[in-house]
């Protein structure tokens, strides 16, 4: 029985509902943004994103009124999706584009392999991640 660790786990159906929980919430009616602070946890299907601070930007007027278009997490972000986990200082989840951009001391762990760099772009639609800026990968040769 071979437990293959798939990178594919990064794929994500971005149309699922997004729930956000945190210690405190501060809504700004003026520009339509909301700021969650303290143990923020965002869950969408399998994917969970936690951070100290999260700013939610809602879609403006026309069709997206009331729908979340972008989540901006900071103060130490952890993204977990199945077997993959990624940490960084900040992250921006653009739901419409289905793309998460994590920046600052990024570490992507995948089974025994760990990749570190200062920028990671995850394309949730086709489940690929691209790190750049002197990426350092540590992996276990021969480990299945």
């Amino acid at each position: 029985q071979e437990t293959a660790i798939k990178f594919g786990g990064l794929a994500q159906d971005t149309s699922l509902p997004v729930e956000v929980a945190s210690d405190a919430l501060d809504v700004n009616q003026g520009d339509g943004t909301a700021v969650f602070t303290g143990n923020v946890l965002v869950t969408q299907g399998e994917m969970k994103l936690s951070s100290q601070r999260l700013r939610v930007i809602y879609g403006d007027g026309s069709d997206g009124a009331g729908r979340i278009s972008e989540l901006r997490a900071s103060g130490g972000v952890t993204l977990v999706n199945g077997a993959e986990a990624a940490e960084s200082r900040e992250a921006v989840y653009n739901i419409d584009a289905g793309e998460v951009v994590m920046t600052g001391d990024v570490i992507l762990t995948q089974g025994q392999n760990a990749l570190s760099s200062n920028r990671l772009v995850i394309d949730l639609n086709n489940g690929t991640g691209t790190m750049d800026g002197r990426v350092r990968t540590v992996f276990q040769p021969g480990a299945d």
Partner: peptide
């Protein structure tokens, strides 16, 4: 522990089907 391999590069792409 068996020695660990280190890979350093300017860009690393992680693809489905376990390609790096």
């Amino acid at each position: 522990a068996p020695p660990v391999a280190t890979l350093v590069a300017d860009r690393v792409e992680v693809e489905t089907g376990n390609q790096l």
